[in-house]
């Protein structure tokens, strides 16, 4: 392994004079999970969306190790290339499951869609894989033909994860994956994410405001404030021995249970 999976350089996004995010650079290796934390308005979601190709940044490069062509700047890719990437090698788990699911399509159809989008044409196989994945995210096989509108929030989120991971992506973007879920449901989801990341050798970038989530899931951490990265490093080091004033404030503000 001589090069990172993802090499982000100098990403910046401005809204007029206002900074969305500025001067962000980092690399990510296979199997690594990077957490990005900050409060509302810190620029963390802007950064995630710029990297994932949902927003166009004003500056910077995002080099990704494509299997076929080596390191390529995804920001310079043609639209068909980028869309293909986001259906196969990349995955994006939205905070609100309904942004990442087709609510009028059954659970099985949701999971099978990415397979059909890359050419799967055998109904029986598609259904079998959908059942397998629903099982891995702990959704009962009996729910395969139900619509996500009939699912609880936690189930919808797990379905979103299954839908994203079925094509075996190597990089997963997650935007507040446990936001809005009950605490017990969050625990289940975190456990699931951890084991999937490890089993599949995934790399992930997780944006969250919840420090407990990054402590459990992320190997490395970036702390953002007002669009800038103020501190970065090993997760437990940044949380246990914060150097920057803002990080110290953030860590000391967390309520202990």
């Amino acid at each position: 392994m001589t090069q990172p999976l993802l090499d982000v350089r100098g990403i910046a996004k401005f809204y007029g004079a206002r900074i969305g995010c500025a001067d962000v650079s980092f690399d990510l290796w296979p199997g690594e999970v990077m957490g990005i934390v900050g409060e509302s308005g810190s620029g963390k979601s802007t950064l995630l969306n710029c990297i994932a190709g949902h927003l166009e940044p004003d500056a910077g490069e995002v080099f990704f190790d494509t299997r076929v062509d080596g390191m390529k700047d995804t920001l310079l890719m043609s639209e068909p290339e980028r869309r293909m990437l986001s259906r196969t090698d990349w995955a994006f788990v939205h905070q609100h499951a309904r942004d990442g699911l087709r609510m009028s399509v059954s659970a099985g159809g949701n999971v099978g869609e990415r397979l059909m989008a890359v050419g799967a044409r055998h109904y029986g196989d598609i259904r079998a894989r959908a059942i397998d994945w629903l099982g891995r995210v702990e959704i009962s096989e009996s729910r395969i033909d139900d619509r996500p509108t009939a699912f609880s929030g936690g189930m919808q989120q797990r379905l979103q994860i299954a839908r994203n991971l079925v094509t075996g992506p190597r990089l997963v973007f997650m935007d507040e994956p446990t936001g809005g879920l009950d605490v017990s449901v969050q625990a289940r989801l975190l456990d699931l994410l951890r084991s999937l990341v490890r089993e599949m050798g995934l790399s992930a970038i997780i944006v969250t405001h919840d420090l407990a989530v990054v402590r459990l899931l992320a190997d490395r951490l970036m702390v953002m404030k007002d669009g800038h990265v103020v501190e970065a490093g090993l997760t437990d080091q940044v949380l246990d021995d914060p150097q920057h004033a803002y990080t110290q404030l953030l860590v000391s503000s967390v309520l202990q249970v």
Binding site: Q237, D240, D241
Partner: peptide
């Protein structure tokens, strides 16, 4: 000990 582990800088 924490410094040896890399937990403290």
């Amino acid at each position: 000990m924490r410094m040896i582990y890399g937990n403290y800088l």
